[in-house]
Design a protein around this nucleic acid. Structure first.
Lengths: 117, 117
DNA sequence: TTTCCATACGTACGCCTGTACGTATATATT
DNA sequence: AATATATACGTACAGGCGTACGTATGGAAA
């Protein structure tokens, strides 16, 4: 996931480019990043091509899809499929700052407006 | 997680009691539930005592703690540690119904009030 | 041209997870 | 008392994940 996120963020990239996205506090071995990218491709979340000596990876699955699946899975396991308790948890545990709270309120307004139309 | 949730919900319980919480669409084998409970105890999330022939498990870790860890992990992996995008995702993908949205709005009000005090 | 460096690719390995079987044994049923 | 039933407990086994090593090879530096 960490690796896939990098691919989404910086777009098509070589192993080295992905590797270099990680700050020193998250120090993977180059070969480890390589393995992850290979596996990501195996699962169909990315494609790659060999240009000369260097393989370049491109994300194929959309973030939205992968995120939906992963979050759905967590929600099933932790909350029996209910999303609301997760949001409640996040807000109550103060994981969201003031600015964030304001943004969420705005989002809710929009969703309600859109829904009633 | 599914198993631990049951322990939290129904309190101390025997393997059979936990086993019976699952509806037929989620059909574990009795032995499977047994194994999970053993592992949950191994990890320190529960304790157990043998009364006569029957072992009874009691959750020890608090849901809040386990949930915080699991959600934190997901947020790290999927969103680089930012919780807001997760909430945004949940709301935008319409995972929350009207009633839920209203409740969240109320919650936000409360949090803001509490914070400013 | 010889040596070094980067990269690809195959392989490894321990741990975790999901799932369950088999066996011993104690309790309930006949 | 003999037999069936339930339970605990040890064990298993495949697949995934996190992490990386080793080796071959092509291009760069000396």
């Amino acid at each position: 996931m960490e690796i896939a996120r990098v691919l989404w963020e910086i777009g098509p990239a070589t192993v080295r480019e992905v590797f270099e996205q990680f700050p020193s506090n998250r120090d993977f071995n180059f070969a480890t990043v390589q393995t992850y990218l290979r596996r990501i491709e195996l699962k169909g979340y990315a494609t790659s091509t060999l240009k000369g000596r260097v393989r370049t990876y491109t994300a194929s699955a959309k973030p939205r899809t992968v995120i939906r699946d992963a979050v759905g899975d967590l929600v099933d396991r932790l909350f029996g499929g209910e999303s609301l308790p997760l949001v409640r948890h996040l807000i109550e545990q103060r994981e969201i700052d003031d600015k964030g709270l304001a943004e969420i309120r705005k989002l809710i307004d929009q969703m309600e407006k859109r829904e009633s139309k």
